[in-house]
Amino acid sequence: MIRRPMSDNPPSSPDFTGTGLACRRGERLVFAGLDFAVPASGALVLVGPNGSGKSSLLRVMAGLTPPEAGRLAWDGVALKEDPQAHRARLHFIGHSDALKPVLSAAEMLGFWAGMRGGGDVAAALARFGLSAAAPFPCRYLSAGQRRRLALARLVASPAPLWLLDEPTTGLDTEATAQLMAAIAAHRRDGGCVVLSTHAPLDLPGAASLSLADFRPRRGLAA
């Protein structure tokens, strides 16, 4: 992929940007006219009431849902031009843990890391306190352990962009701290993270985006 220099973008241009985004779920327009920018090492926290479109925005950012309008770009290059490159640089952790009851925790994480070209599975399990659970099938894991195993995918194989949909749901304080440490390390390495949350999180220097501000005005939907 050729990185086209954008004349109107200064060199310190943000890494991941969206402009004029609108999203439709089914027949419902969820948000419209939304702009965001996440610089390298940056963090963006999505807040807003239920149904305001936090998950939808994360899905648009991941490329799962094509935006109804607007443009997403990475370093100024539109994502549309190379969706495969975008998939290679992102981790998306949604509400479901994507675990198979019959595979062991190590096998499961090994698979997801392997599909991205491999990574240090043992270290990733250790980061989230799952070393002891590694040889056991996922069906033995508790809900919190399953969540941690899903999050361990983040550190098992590196990717510069993390998209996390309410990652702390079901995590105890210790696991939340492990996640925050992982995010901090990721940002130190220049990675960026976008996450939605209902609980206040300890993310130094994070920007916040309130989805409630982009509710489509009446009459827009029709």
Binding site: E27, R218, A221, A222
Partner: peptide, 14 residues
């Protein structure tokens, strides 16, 4: 019918 659904939805969102 689609327009009607859209109106219902607006009503719901409002």
């Amino acid at each position: 019918a689609a327009k009607l659904r859209a109106l219902r939805l607006q009503e719901f969102q409002a």
